[in-house]
């Protein structure tokens, strides 16, 4: 059975289908990564259209709280085994948005991140390097973020709810707005 798992991991490392969540400014680094100059397809990485099909969720940069909600929904729609790549310093510590009220600072608190790509911006070489790193991690069986998410589901949910509460509107009805004015 373990040989079978090793074989499966070998194939998983060589065929990583990617869903890129492109709200951040880092999205601009992806077209050169995909196309002729850097060509990520040679590592078996292909962009995919929906979370159902994808293995990797690539978060390109900062996430506002509202978009985090979508990211969590998308992440939960993906099938295991699945991995998250945090791209750019925004996903690590907030980057230049470190003091913004509406942007999350550490992605790791809300969904498990398997690999960060540091830099603002990381170059396409760094992205390609991350794919190779992720392949090694999968081969060694260390990239187990999706299992961590299931194990610590309550913790992640609590963290998520804490910030999602902020997205609910303060004023419920339009009448209240006119009254207060």
């Amino acid at each position: 059975m373990s040989e079978w798992k090793e074989l499966a991991d070998y194939f998983r490392g060589r065929s990583m289908w990617m869903l890129h969540y492109c709200t951040g400014c880092g999205a601009i680094e992806l077209p050169p990564t995909m196309t002729s100059r850097w060509d990520m397809e040679r590592f078996g990485v292909v962009p995919m259209a929906t979370p159902r099909q994808a293995d990797i969720l690539l978060i390109t940069g900062y996430l506002s709280i509202k978009s985090l909600k979508r990211v969590v929904y998308t992440y939960e729609q993906m099938s295991a085994p699945k991995w998250v790549l945090g791209f750019g310093s925004c996903t690590i510590n907030g980057g230049i948005y470190w003091d913004s009220y509406s942007v999350i600072k550490r992605l790791d608190k809300y969904i498990p991140v398997d690999l960060y790509i540091a830099g603002c911006m990381p170059r396409p070489e760094a992205i390609l390097d991350s794919f190779v790193k992720l392949r090694e991690l999968i081969k060694k069986g260390e990239a187990k973020g999706y299992e961590k998410y299931v194990k610590n589901f309550e913790w992640y949910k609590a963290n998520q709810d804490k910030v999602f509460r902020r997205t609910t509107p303060v004023l419920k009805k339009p009448e209240e707005v006119t009254k207060s004015a």
Partner: peptide, 9 residues
């Protein structure tokens, strides 16, 4: 209900 909706809940 658990369906692809382009990330929208």
């Amino acid at each position: 209900e658990d369906n692809y909706t382009a990330g929208q809940i």
